[in-house]
Amino acid sequence: MSTPLSHWDLDWIVGALRDGRERWQQEWPHPRTLLPLPSQAVLTQVVEALSSALYPTSRVAGDDHDVDGAVARSLEEALEALAKQVRIELEVNQAEGRSAQGPGAPDPAEPGGTDSADLLARARALVQDFASQLPTIRHLLDTDLRAAYIGDPAADSLHEVLACYPGFKAITYHRFAHALHGLGVPVIARIIGETAHSCTGVDIHPGARIGDSFFIDHGTGVVIGGTAVIGNRVRLYQAVTLGAKRFPVDQNGHLVKGEPRHPIVEDDVVIYSGATILGRVTIGSGATIGGNVWLTSSVPAGATVTQAMARNETFADGAGI
């Protein structure tokens, strides 16, 4: 297909972009064939349909009592769309020499590629495995929903939490993303996590392990790193960071990936707004971390950590300068 005529000097621009692609391929080896990536728009629809299947709150057209039928239709549509997106990620993984985990994944030691039909079969098997986790995800979300209702005196009903609370939406997306991350499709998991981030202000890496009855109040600005481990009945307020203290590098100066570098937060911990906790430290069971605290060391069970009291002194006639 010939390039259409243009008034924008496209020959030079297209050539410069080609040079950039070639430099990129030399510096960061990857397949020369342009591959599609999973679609954020499709995955957003998938997660919304899964959420509706887990919590069917709207009336079912034609028959208010056919809730199971509506759930089945939502799941069928969502899982079919998800399988197509998973197939795309598996194709990219294969082209880049990586393999997904989960059912039907080939032995990476075996030579040879996989045709499109095999990739789709693997994608369907992986999505079936994901679908089998939905009842467990629903159970966890029930505990999160109750934790938000019990933990916030402004919540008048469970339905209000379900419909309005950004923290609950963020944890809903995270529970889906975490399951998919564990099955070996990290790009799809990250897309789902970043979709929640963009609409709630809560940034949870899909690798983070979070127990039951988790409540994020208000939510905006919360950051939870990928190797963080959070126990049961933990409550966070806005602008809390569970981050890494440092990023070790290897002998070639490249970041070492996959090492535990984020906090462990044990059961029944409360962390108030603006607190920053960095590194592989442990916040013991029942501890309370006050607002705007900066922590890089572990805290024993039951402890309360607050800011040091600010010193208030009055200076006159140039004293203290």
Rank of each mutant, 00 (worst) to 15 (best):
Q85S: 07
L50G: 01
A81G: 00
V14M: 12
H65F: 09
R87V: 04
T33F: 03
E48M: 08
L43S: 01
R23N: 08
Q45M: 08
E22D: 13
S74I: 00
T44G: 04
E91W: 09
S58Q: 14
L90H: 05
E27F: 08
E91M: 13
Q25F: 12
A53G: 09
R18S: 06
Q26G: 03
R23I: 11
L79K: 02
A41K: 11
A78D: 00
A53K: 07
S99K: 03
Q94M: 13
T57F: 09
V42L: 01
A100K: 10
A95N: 09
L43V: 10
R21Q: 13
A105W: 14
E89D: 02
E96H: 12
E27G: 01
Q94W: 12
P38H: 07
A49F: 01
A53S: 12
W24F: 14
G97C: 08
H30A: 15
L43E: 03
V67K: 07
H65M: 04
E76T: 12
Q94D: 14
V92G: 00
E76Q: 09
S58F: 06
L54T: 04
V46Q: 06
R21V: 13
D19L: 15
D64F: 05
E80T: 15
V46T: 05
Q26F: 11
A41Y: 07
E91S: 13
E22I: 11
Q94C: 01
I88C: 11
E76H: 11
L50K: 05
D19S: 14
L43D: 03
Q45P: 00
V14Y: 13
L34P: 06
E89C: 06
L90P: 02
V46Y: 09
I88N: 00
S99T: 14
G102N: 07
A49C: 03
V14Q: 13
L82C: 03
Y55H: 14
Q94I: 05
A83D: 03
R98A: 10
G62Q: 07
S74G: 00
P36E: 06
R21Y: 10
V47I: 14
A100Q: 06
Q40T: 13
S52W: 07
A83E: 06
L90F: 07
L54V: 01
I88M: 05
L17N: 07
T57D: 00
E22M: 08
A95K: 04
E91A: 14
A100N: 09
P56T: 05
V71M: 01
S39P: 12
V86K: 01
L54M: 15
G69H: 10
L82S: 02
D63W: 03
G62S: 08
Y55K: 00
D63H: 09
L35C: 09
A83M: 06
L50H: 09
A41H: 12
L34R: 08
P36C: 01
G62N: 08
A70K: 10
R23L: 14
Q26V: 14
V47L: 05
E80Q: 05
A49W: 04
A72M: 04
A70V: 01
Q101F: 12
L17Q: 14
Q40M: 07
G69V: 07
T33R: 13
A95F: 12
G104Q: 07
D19K: 15
G102A: 02
E77D: 05
S99I: 09
V14R: 15
V67W: 06
W24N: 06
Q94N: 05
L75Y: 09
T33C: 00
L54P: 04
G62W: 12
S58A: 13
W28E: 12
L75S: 00
E89P: 03
G104T: 10
A16Y: 04
W28K: 02
V47K: 01
